[in-house]
Amino acid sequence: MFGYVIPCKMELKIKDYEKIKAYYCGLCRAIKYNFGNIPRLTINYDMTFLAIFLDALDSHKNEYISSNCILHPFKKRNFIVNSSPLEYAAFMNVILAYHKLLDDVDDDNSFKSKIFSALIKRYFKEIPKEYLKIEEHMVKQLEKLYSLEKSGNIDNLDELSHPFGELTADSILNYCNDEKNKESLYYLGYNLGKWIYIIDAFDDLEKDLKHNKFNGINAALNKDNLPYNEFRESVQNRINFILTSYARECSEILNSLPIEKNYDILYNIFNYGLLEKMEFVFKKEESAK
């Protein structure tokens, strides 16, 4: 359920592409200095987006360093450092990665995920108490989601994706102390979270049906138990419309926020990146053929 919120590289200016890489490397560095090297394996682009978005609401000037890293020992990379949004994103990255591993264990009884989740859990002692309180609230939303998934009584996709929308909205609001724009920030995170949940479900649809695993789209919309190809054909236009609607909401809300920097990057993500990712997921099967 990670790695979907990315920019469209072909529409980026070089300076913005380099800046995104500096955020990504800065996030990796922040994870290292707060947790160590092993949790760096959990880094993902969705948390990079979180840092970029939260930092866009702050007017302070970014601080950069140029250095080598474990993956690029011979070529220096640019890192954004001493950034509160990156520090916050680092903690959220590890917390959400841990719960994703637990979900994999629950779904597949994955031995690999069992081992890795146990390793990641050891690093929770490094998480400040205020962030552990945030985790408690996230766990409640995840429990609501898992309860719905296991209930077998799912009336619609909107209801099913609601808890993940709440979780994503909370990840923004727990950092931002902006009462004036609280509602806009909430709905941007809420719509984005629902977009992530649904595109992930559509991306996994074939695999989940093949292995008889839970899939939100299948549970909510496949009331006639159609086989994969027939069901996908019948539902893809509807899913495309739903996802496009959520992406459009995010784009419209962005324009109402007091963005101090990173606007071009965020505009790219909401107007090109999300749609490009949708196109990739929808055409994945045809591309493979």
Results as ranks from 00 to 15, higher is better:
Ile253Cys: 12
Ala247Cys: 13
Tyr263Leu: 14
Leu119Ala: 15
Tyr4Gln: 06
Asn93Cys: 07
Met92Asn: 09
Ser113Asn: 09
Asp224Lys: 13
Ser84Lys: 10
Pro258Phe: 04
Leu57Gly: 09
Glu260Lys: 15
Leu173Lys: 05
Lys223Asp: 10
Ile65Ser: 06
Asn212Asp: 15
Glu159Arg: 00
Tyr98Glu: 10
Met278His: 09
Leu205Tyr: 01
Lys182Ser: 15
Ile253Pro: 10
Phe214Gly: 12
Ser147Glu: 12
Ile134Gln: 12
Phe164Thr: 02
Leu142Glu: 05
Gly216Glu: 03
Tyr186Trp: 07
Leu243Ile: 06
Glu136Val: 14
Asp264Cys: 08
Asn222Ser: 08
Ser147Trp: 00
Ile95Glu: 05
Ile253Glu: 12
Val5Ser: 04
Val94Pro: 02
Phe282Asp: 07
Leu188Gln: 02
Ile95Arg: 01
Ala51Glu: 07
Glu18Ser: 09
Asn62Ile: 01
Tyr98Ala: 04
Leu221Cys: 09
Asn225Gly: 12
Met92Pro: 06
Ser245Cys: 09
Glu230Ala: 06
Phe124Glu: 12
Asp104His: 00
Leu12Thr: 12
Lys150Ile: 00
Met1Lys: 05
Leu54Glu: 07
Ala169Val: 01
Gly273Glu: 08
Ile198Thr: 07
Leu86Met: 07
Asn191Leu: 01
His60Phe: 08
Asn191Ser: 11
Glu11Gly: 15
Asn78Leu: 01
Leu209Ser: 06
Ile20Leu: 09
Arg122Gln: 15
Pro85Gln: 10
Leu185Val: 07
Ser245Glu: 15
Val235Glu: 02
Lys261Thr: 13
Asn153Asp: 15
Asp204Asn: 09
His162Gln: 03
Glu230His: 03
Phe2Asn: 10
Asp55Trp: 02
Lys121Phe: 14
